[in-house]
């Protein structure tokens, strides 16, 4: 606990020595973003995040819309006094948990690995440019 750390002034650790200042070189980012790994990361993320977002927003708003406009249908009792409205609301919790874990799995197995590769390449590219 040396207590010397300042707000964001610390030298980054485990980042192949890249600091924000060094990265401010012209067209550096356009260049790394054109690389296939970054493109692949973009595509992988879009393939997962866009459909998931559309899905969860649709699934979620089905609840207030159905409950609001079709209260009697949603009030149909299914198990004892438990109705569709309650079960559908409950299912939202499991939907959210399942989607969150799917994202976690995808991110750990695909996104993080690609990100690590991209960071390594960016460091290399920077070293070449600096040389």
């Amino acid at each position: 606990m040396a207590g010397v750390a300042g707000g964001g002034k610390t030298q980054p650790k485990g980042d192949k020595g890249i600091s924000p200042k060094e990265l401010d070189k012209e067209h550096f980012y356009e260049e790394v973003e054109k690389r296939p790994e970054f493109q692949e990361l973009q595509k992988a993320k879009a393939r997962f995040i866009i459909p998931s977002t559309i899905f969860f927003i649709t699934y979620y708003f089905a609840l207030p819309i159905l409950v609001g406009y079709f209260p009697d249908m949603m009030d149909t009792r299914v198990i004892g006094q438990i109705n569709i409205a309650y079960l559908f609301a409950l299912s939202q919790f499991f939907m959210a948990w399942i989607l969150a874990f799917m994202y976690l799995k995808k991110a750990t197995s695909v996104f993080d690995k690609l990100t690590a590769k991209i960071r390594e390449q960016a460091a290399k590219l920077l070293a070449e440019k600096g040389a």
Binding site: F38, Q42, T115, A122
Partner: peptide, 9 residues
């Protein structure tokens, strides 16, 4: 965009 996606910097 690059930094937000990769955490560089």
């Amino acid at each position: 965009y690059f930094r937000s996606e990769t955490g560089v910097g």
